[in-house]
Design a protein around this nucleic acid. Sequence first.
DNA 1: ATCCATTTGTGCGTATGTATC
DNA 2: CGATACATACGCACAAATGGA
Lengths: 218, 218
Amino acid sequence: MTTNQIKRYSLSQQVADQLESRIADGVYAVGEKIPTETELAEMFDVSRNTLREVIQCLTSVGILEVRQGNGTYVRATNRFHVYMKKEYEKVSLENILEVRNALEITIAQLAAKCRTEEDLTAIRQALFQRQQNLSPIRENTQADVNFHMAIAQACHNGILLNLYLSISSYLEDHISKRQKATTMEPLQIDQLHEELYQSIVQQNDHQALLCVQNILKI
Amino acid sequence: MTTNQIKRYSLSQQVADQLESRIADGVYAVGEKIPTETELAEMFDVSRNTLREVIQCLTSVGILEVRQGNGTYVRATNRFHVYMKKEYEKVSLENILEVRNALEITIAQLAAKCRTEEDLTAIRQALFQRQQNLSPIRENTQADVNFHMAIAQACHNGILLNLYLSISSYLEDHISKRQKATTMEPLQIDQLHEELYQSIVQQNDHQALLCVQNILKI
DNA sequence: ATCCATTTGTGCGTATGTATC
DNA sequence: CGATACATACGCACAAATGGA
């Protein structure tokens, strides 16, 4: 193989793209060890030197992590999340929450406008799942994330979805802590989510805005 | 010689950071050719092999571009813009405009809340500059960009500022085209900007929201 | 059209440090 | 502790592309 090159990209660049795609596709999951340099060099039919350049690049981007004498591990699925994380680390938590609030509001309004029937089904399922986990609050976070993620999908905007994904995973701990510390009744919180769902069903984007603002006050 | 390394980062990684910073600081501008590998290797006191790893990495993230037998050129000032540009290219123009609108609105509201006296001075100057260029519409875009950028600075949120920078530079052509095609009177548009400035002065974030929405309708 | 200096691309060899068993 | 394997950095030599004389 390997001779379909337009030569515009270097060999290591091509191999790097392939390996990066495999990681993005989940062939090698986050935290897992990838094959040794020698094995990978054979797999891609390149010299070990070339493959070392590949690993060097993916390491510098933050996708891979090399542990000397041990092996190479996957640290992240793609560059966007890595880089957004770096950006988040540079600013205050308050700043990040400002961005998150803006995202939530924008996403809810767009979801109300653009949602399809399939989107509604997904959101409804997540809402049910959320309601069933009401009593044991500990596992509520995952259901909550699923609900908001389903809405983010429904806004049909890849940029907003990616930004929301990156900021959610970054704020994971903060969100779950905050949720456990709230004084609001679980039933009351559920009511707010139900209202948000209904306003998306009715394609009432103004109502969706108000609902999200209430949820953000939790 | 050069043994002040904490060894947590490899030599090539450290040099890569330094070179990346220089590019971000504008020492080597976009489109310019950087010194040869041999020269850079001497400058940073590393071998050419090590320096080649550096260039390889910066190339892989899209900051540099190598032309064999010619030299190495600067393609972008920093990673964030490179990544965001890639993301923008993956989605529709409508999606990008949705993100931009959300940014404008969020930024204006936050600017109204957080602006300092220094911020106001900067915004006012940009507004004056904008008003003086009213008659010759052709050079209005730059003044317009400066005005909005001054507001983005005033929101004191690095993430929002970076996002706004990346999306503005990406939409540069689109914005200027749209501005020339508008049917609205220059004086009327100026009035809208004046109102936005006043609402930021008065720290009236709700009023700022309304003003931006009107400006976005242009 | 040809040659030549410059510059990047590739491969090999070596020395030293470092993690793991 | 020593042995082994791998990481890191360096130096050299030659190939290939580019652009100008």
